[in-house]
């Protein structure tokens, strides 16, 4: 999956979690969305794990700065899953 494809799929997860419409872009981060707090982040990560069938390691999602980096992390974990 390309970063663009991953971001498009992330949009469906965002639509299920946010009340307001949030447009997924590579530059977007939690600071840009009022509703997006540390608690909502939990739901978001679990939703992403479910949608992409991946499992992140402790602390690594927190280290991503924006959705572009998050998408790259998803891609990395997906390719590992494919090898295993």
């Amino acid at each position: 999956m390309t970063q663009t494809e991953i971001l498009a799929k992330m949009q469906t997860v965002f639509d299920d979690v946010f009340l307001d419409d949030v447009k997924v872009t590579p530059e977007l981060s939690a600071n840009d969305v009022e509703e997006w707090d540390s608690l909502l982040q939990i739901s978001l990560v679990l939703g992403v794990e479910k949608a992409f069938n991946v499992r992140f390691r402790v602390g690594e999602v927190e280290a991503t700065k924006n959705l572009g980096e998050f998408a790259d992390l998803i891609q990395k974990r997906m390719s590992e899953g494919a090898k295993a």
């Binding site: 997860v13 299920d16 979690v17 946010f18 009340l19 739901s43 679990l46 939703g47 479910k50 949608a51």
Partner: peptide, 18 residues
């Protein structure tokens, strides 16, 4: 039974209430 499904349903509910 799925966590994300329940949360997504909760989001739909809040939108319906709103």
């Amino acid at each position: 039974t799925d966590f994300s499904e329940v949360l997504a349903l909760a989001t739909q509910r809040k939108k319906a209430q709103r």
